[in-house]
């Protein structure tokens, strides 16, 4: 049994690498999209905000798996192609990006109106105030929730296994298909592995939150 576990190890490690790969790619895209949309939403008037709000509510309201399936299975029907990794990263990025934009917008809005008043009284323009005064302060407040967001992305990456991406969970399942005796040890290993990744991240996020308040 130990021998089978040892032979499974290389594929599990490759799976883990893929998990990190798609999680990191999705995180980068989500942060970029989050900043773009979040800053935009904090500045534009109500009317222009509505389509952005609708997009965010869509991305947050639809189950991630449905989005992944649509991008992977459904898009080719409409003429576009998608690789499984690509569809997974895209879906994760859309979902996490919507959460990210709320983090960014929330942090910006939480910077007291007094700061903006003071900047305006000094003669600073709107964009100057945003980039020189508000954003630097908001960035610190965004850190804990963004750290938590990465943990959420890692957790959600397991869904990619259902569209055939060979990340950690899929590697676990493939090995179990070959040798069912590995079922208990490998699923336990999977739980431990994901816990070992997400628990420290969750702790880090909490510590950051405490030290910033």
């Amino acid at each position: 049994m130990n021998a089978s576990f040892a032979t499974a190890l290389p594929s599990l490690l490759r799976g883990l690498a893929t998990t990190f790969g798609i999680a990191s790619a999705a995180m980068l895209l989500a942060v970029a999209a989050g900043f773009a949309v979040g800053i935009l939403r904090s500045q534009v008037p109500r009317l222009l905000d509505l389509p952005l709000l609708a997009a965010i509510e869509f991305a947050r309201g639809i189950p991630l798996l449905v989005l992944m399936y649509f991008l992977f299975f459904g898009l080719p029907q409409l003429g576009m192609r998608a690789s499984s990794n690509g569809a997974a990263v895209a879906a994760l990025a859309i979902y996490a990006g919507s959460l990210g934009s709320e983090i960014v917008r929330g942090a910006i809005v939480s910077i007291a109106a007094g700061q903006r008043e003071a900047a305006a009284a000094l003669g600073l323009g709107r964009l100057q105030t945003l980039f020189l005064i508000v954003l630097p302060q908001a960035l610190r407040r965004m850190l804990p929730p963004f750290v938590g967001l990465f943990a959420l992305i890692v957790e959600s990456s397991t869904l990619a296994s259902l569209i055939g991406v060979t990340e950690l969970l899929q590697s676990v399942r493939t090995n179990i298909e070959r040798d069912n005796a590995l079922s208990l040890p490998l699923y336990t290993t999977a739980l431990v592995a994901y816990f070992a990744i997400n628990y420290p991240i969750s702790l880090a996020s909490q510590r950051l939150e405490k030290s910033l308040s």
């Binding site: 957790e155 397991t158 179990i176 739980l191 628990y199 969750s202």
Partner: peptide, 23 residues
């Protein structure tokens, strides 16, 4: 709390369905 909060629900479901009976 920490165990079940920080592990993916999909893995938990697989564990309950596939791994438990193998104990």
């Amino acid at each position: 709390t920490e165990l079940f909060r920080n592990t993916p629900p999909l893995v938990q479901i697989y564990f309950l369905f596939f791994a438990l009976p193998e104990i």
